[in-house]
């Protein structure tokens, strides 16, 4: 039916053509990216896999204990025993490696971008809608171009995750820096400090609690995307979730899903505890008291 006067715009085709062009033109660049990512991922995976289960579990529990207290440490240990008992420990470590790597890359991009946006209104005006777009685009859609470029495996999973998890890192960093008391920043200027020094000595430390909240968000989004990346063969818990979906295997689905939940809780509690333990956060907490 042609009941509308508006001609069909081949927007999707254009994007497809663009991605094809990108793939063929930047082949060498993508190859380098792929090789590097794969190497780092393999190394990380090996580190988490090589020691016996209990060594890694106790170390991670110790981290939780140090960050928050004995309750979280104990809870962590129990949770990890549950994961191991349903035979998902290996998958969980693969997923953890993916999450850590993707989050690290996302933050390495997001924090400088957030700083830039905080200091330059024009950058902020450009970045904001792009972030909105990235955050609201259904997560699966990212997988399509990424697969055409990187084929299947861990690398397309990592790249899609980085793109998907970037937004809150940028947003929280910008917000945190913009929220720093203007007069304190002015004091830095008034005594003749340079903008770079003001950023390091005043803005970043005071924005740190907010930036850490962003870090937490980035990690949580990474985890959810890493699981979805099971669709493109990224492996880990996501691989089993996808397999369970395809075979309508309720028991496998539940065990893999439960492991994701435990891992998510662990990552969330530890990162939020770490952010509230920073000296700045403590100093600021007493201010409002």
């Amino acid at each position: 039916m042609t009941d509308t006067m508006i001609p069909r715009v081949q927007l999707g085709d254009w994007v497809a053509t663009f991605v094809d062009w990108l793939t063929s033109t930047f082949r060498p660049v993508f190859d380098v990216i792929k090789t590097v990512l794969l190497a780092v991922y393999d190394a990380l995976e090996t580190v988490l896999h090589a020691p016996p289960f209990w060594v890694v579990a106790v170390l991670l529990a110790a981290l939780a204990y140090a960050a928050k207290g004995w309750r979280l440490g104990l809870g962590t240990l129990v949770g990890f025993v549950v994961i191991a008992s349903v035979n998902q420990w290996g998958n969980a470590m693969d997923t953890l490696a993916l999450v850590l790597l993707a989050s690290a890359i996302a933050l390495a991009i997001a924090i400088p971008l957030g700083i830039w946006a905080a200091r330059n209104d024009r950058v902020s005006a450009v970045v904001r809608p792009v972030l909105d777009f990235m955050q609201t685009m259904p997560a699966f859609v990212y997988l399509i171009p990424v697969v055409t470029i990187f084929l299947t495996g861990a690398v397309p999973g990592i790249v899609a995750t980085v793109v998907f998890a970037l937004a809150p890192g940028v947003r929280f960093t910008e917000l945190g820096i913009r929220q720093v008391d203007k007069e304190v920043v002015e004091a830095g200027h008034a005594f003749g400090s340079t903008p770079g020094r003001i950023l390091r000595q005043i803005q970043l430390p005071l924005a740190m609690p907010t930036i850490m909240a962003g870090v937490n968000q980035v990690i949580m989004l990474s985890l959810s995307m890493v699981v979805i990346s099971g669709l493109v063969g990224a492996g880990g818990l996501g691989g089993d979730v996808v397999a369970a979906l395809q075979r309508i295997n309720i028991s496998l689905g539940f065990e893999a899903g439960l492991s994701v939940v435990i891992l998510a809780m662990y990552l969330d509690r530890v990162t939020s505890a770490l952010s509230s333990r920073s000296p700045v956060a403590k100093a600021l907490a007493t201010t409002s008291a």
């Binding site: 007069e183 304190v184 002015e186 004091a187 005594f191 340079t194 100093a283």
Partner: peptide, 21 residues
């Protein structure tokens, strides 16, 4: 300007503007 601020003129702020950390 930075040099002037370091060497010639300093300021006490109405709302203190201390570095809380």
């Amino acid at each position: 300007l930075r040099e002037l601020r370091r060497t010639r003129v300093s300021m006490v702020f109405q709302h203190f503007a201390l570095l809380p950390h």
